[in-house]
Write a protein that binds this DNA or RNA. Sequence first.
RNA 1: CGGGGCGUAGCGCAGCCUGGUAGCGCACCUGCCUUGGGCGCAGGGGGUCGUGUGUUCAAAUCACACCGCCCCGACCA
Length: 570
Amino acid sequence: MRWSTLFIPTLREHSAEAEVISHQLLLRGGYIRQLSAGIYSYLLLAQRSLLKIQQIVREEMNAIGGQEMLLPALNPAEVWQESGRWEIMGDNMFRLKDRFGRDLCLGMTHEEVVTSIARGELRSYKQLPQIWYQIQTKFRDEPRPKSGLLRVRQFIMKDSYTFDLDAAGLDLAYQKHYDAYRHIFDRCGLEYMIVEAHSGAMGGSQSHEFVVRSDAGEDFIARCAACGYAANLEKAVSRPAAPALLDPEGDYTPEEFHTPNLKTIADIAAFTKLPESSQMKSLVMVADGIPVLVMLRGDHQLSETKLQGLLHATDVRPAHPQEIIDLFGASAGSLGPVGVKNLRILADLALQRRRNMISGANRDDYHLKNVTPGEDFNPEYFDLRQVAAGDACVNCGGALEIVKAIEIGHIFKLGYKYSESMGLRVLGEDGKEITPIMGSYGIGIERILTCAIELYNDKDGMVLPPPIAPFSVVITPVNYADSLQRETADLLYAQCVKAGIDALLDDRDERPGVKFKDADLIGIPYRITVGKKLRDAKVEFSSRRTRISEDVQLHEAVDHLRRRISGIAL
RNA sequence: CGGGGCGUAGCGCAGCCUGGUAGCGCACCUGCCUUGGGCGCAGGGGGUCGUGUGUUCAAAUCACACCGCCCCGACCA
């Protein structure tokens, strides 16, 4: 394409609105423009890049037997009510009414729709397995859109869904997706991690996330450099550090002591001169309206996701101050497990076999010492603790680190949640009904581009991996008004077109500096500069990533380019 | 939803405190000049000052309300 005819609105200065680097460069490079909070127009360059990403995704999905469909973005409320997610999705779902007042929503994911198709059409075990996918716009009314294309209200997702007869079939479908996702992200040139993940409101058992490490990310990943263990913090497990002080031996009875105006774990630690790990933390959480008492070691944090998962709750929140007073007769800061009869007591595993610890006394301004789990109160033990940096890896004992990351893909074993709730059944070989088992798998298309920019950029702009760059090469005549340069550049361009190479001809009447700056900014992997070396029948070939330039004979230039594009070297 | 910040030309900003003429840089248009890293010179176009109400002889400027955007937190299949 000829640059002089294109709409590529690059900017010299960066926009004050943009903080993260990918957002700045997408705006500056003329890739995107914002329409509203979390709503963006994708201009020529972004669209070309996104189409290339989608094509890679399509090829890899087809390679595992995926069948591409296009499901409606506009969904009637009924299917969502059947699965129960009409309520669960809450304010995150865009809702609207038609002219008759019927409830509709914009699809944020498509388990309901595919399940409704499947139950209407799939009749026999002979029709399974199935892998269905689509590449489609999703809508989510995020509480806080941010960071350019990283968290938006409308975005493109590749979502796929599998139907299998049994768990072994699902395992296979899951593995196929796992492998396909690796191929996709490899081909897109990303450096990524695969981590164990929490299934969240999707339901289901096993789940992995594909993430790119980045400070712009919002996911926290616990990982072990020694053995490779990596998991989303919502899911991660670890061996906690030992308590800072050994518990007093002996069979003491709980004993009150006065702690005026001492509310926090830190206050009590300072007052008693005992480490925080010698205390028990009492948290009152309300899960789907039912309060529970959660006990943790004083220096540990609760993982609300783990609590939510083990209670099978859709909503978990801390109790309000008045609810706490009604339940305990004391306020937060003086709560404890001793004598609690009216609600479940859940304790983290780190409290097992501990003795003579400190907790609140359920009387304002008083605490208890010599509280022993299992003797002075009887909790149910679960893994409730959120992993902290420095904890020991459960596999190898190495120290875990916690890093920020951007989620680019997520695969789930759904199990029977949707097929059961929506009544999907087929007849088996023996004539009995079978409920198929499902999986669901998603890739955020824009996030691949965004992550590539976050990972690969320098002071001059983006450095895009060739497979996802909007153009493979830019041909830059230093002075297009010069007839020899013009004819040569036109010829090279025509040769590229003929060779099927995505070429951009910078035929603008601009000074060379402007052309070079723009080419660098928008991240085109290769540049062929047509200038004074034409005297020796040479042009200059340069790589955006390595910044290395070399002189190439004019008649060899396109072959050279072709070798570079198909090769590994950038 | 809580906290903070910001809305003046396409972009980046000044002007507001102390009311009276809307300004700068970049970008854009025309001409000349220049052509290997965002040249130079000259001329020029472009504004409901986010919206509304109020105060005032007079509002970008003061007051109130609303809307929008960004950041932090809550939240986040």
